[in-house]
């Protein structure tokens, strides 16, 4: 197990290096200039060139890459050109809203998706199955920003019971932080719930055809016990893969939802940084997202063994 873990951790190094090369190349190939974004629309070319020189942006691209990688391996992702603060600090400040949003949206997605999938499978081809699958399809089809805007209109403006936008940090007021996250988490979680429900249903249907399920029923176990103790646990492996992907997607790219709800999260930072051509932040943020994907995948793989004792890593 330990050997497997170290192998997986070591495999992160080439993965991250490839991501670093690709993102650095793409960012520098994209037209646009961080100096121009910083100096404003009426800055002259002379001023822009001076700032480019000061920032080292006129150095050859390979030189800039080597310097960036050299710093990145020591944990220094550089300084944001636009925000004038270390990239790690800029990302760090946005971890809380994005992390909480991801957590809450995942809870909603799993909380709605798994039971919906189980109900649909256990009432296969009956009314309950159809209702659940229509809802799941709706979740998958409705864009989260559209749902978000409607939730704002309904619960933020018409019946103002929840904040329409913004964020309060946990340290300031934990309850208010939660209130600010309910609507965005629901608009994100609903779409993911649809995906999880469909996956859970399909996995459950597979499992329910197995011999051991028939045996469980034959020995007189209650239907509830058959489904939850014998069925769901076995159906969780494929569902868990989807949940893992959901977490990675939410943590790395809730860009639109964060913009609609004005949440100062990592997704919005990444989007704004692309518009401002803030190279160090784009590179740092993409690297962090890649790392996050790799770590979540690893955790999901390890969770397989925990859920299903037949899975062993050597």
């Amino acid at each position: 197990m330990l050997q497997y873990l170290s192998r997986r951790v070591l495999s992160l190094i080439p993965t991250l290096f490839v991501v670093a090369v690709v993102v650095f190349t793409l960012v520098h190939m994209t037209p646009g200039d961080p100096a121009a974004a910083m100096l404003g629309p009426e800055a002259t070319q002379e001023q822009i060139q001076k700032v480019r020189n000061d920032l080292g942006l006129n150095e050859p691209i390979p030189t800039q890459f080597v310097k960036w990688v050299g710093r990145a391996v020591t944990g220094n992702l550089g300084t944001s050109i636009f925000l004038s603060q270390p990239v790690t600090a800029a990302i760090g400040q946005r971890v809380e809203p994005t992390g909480l949003l991801t957590l809450l949206a995942t809870v909603i997605a799993v909380g709605l998706g798994v039971p919906a999938g189980v109900i649909a499978a256990s009432r296969h081809n009956q009314l309950g199955d159809r209702v659940m699958m229509i809802l799941a399809l709706l979740g998958l089809s409705v864009p989260s920003f559209w749902l978000g805007l409607n939730l704002i209109l309904l619960f933020g403006v018409r019946m103002p019971i929840l904040p329409a936008a913004g964020y309060t940090s946990l340290a300031e007021d934990p309850l208010d932080a939660l209130r600010h996250l309910i609507l965005p988490a629901f608009s994100l979680g609903f779409a993911q719930a649809g995906l999880i429900a469909r996956m859970a249903r399909s996995a459950m249907l597979d499992v329910m055809r197995q011999d051991y399920m028939r045996t469980a029923r034959a020995k007189g176990l209650a239907q509830r016990l058959v489904i939850y103790r014998h069925g769901l646990r076995n159906a969780l492996i494929p569902t868990l893969t989807v949940i893992g992907l959901t977490i990675s997607t939410l943590a790395g790219g809730a860009v639109v939802t964060e913009t609609v709800f004005n949440l100062p999260g990592a997704g919005r930072l990444l989007l704004q940084s692309v518009l401002r051509r803030d190279y160090p932040v784009i590179q740092g943020a993409v690297l962090c997202v890649a790392l996050l994907y790799a770590v979540v995948n690893l955790v999901v793989d390890l969770a397989y063994a925990w859920i299903d004792p037949r899975v062993r890593y050597a």
Binding site: G156, V157, P163, A164, A165, F261, N262, Q272
Partner: peptide, 18 residues
Amino acid sequence: FIPVPDTNTRLSGLESGE
């Protein structure tokens, strides 16, 4: 001064009293 890049969000925030 709260940066709100999206115009719809600015307006709904104003309507809701945010």
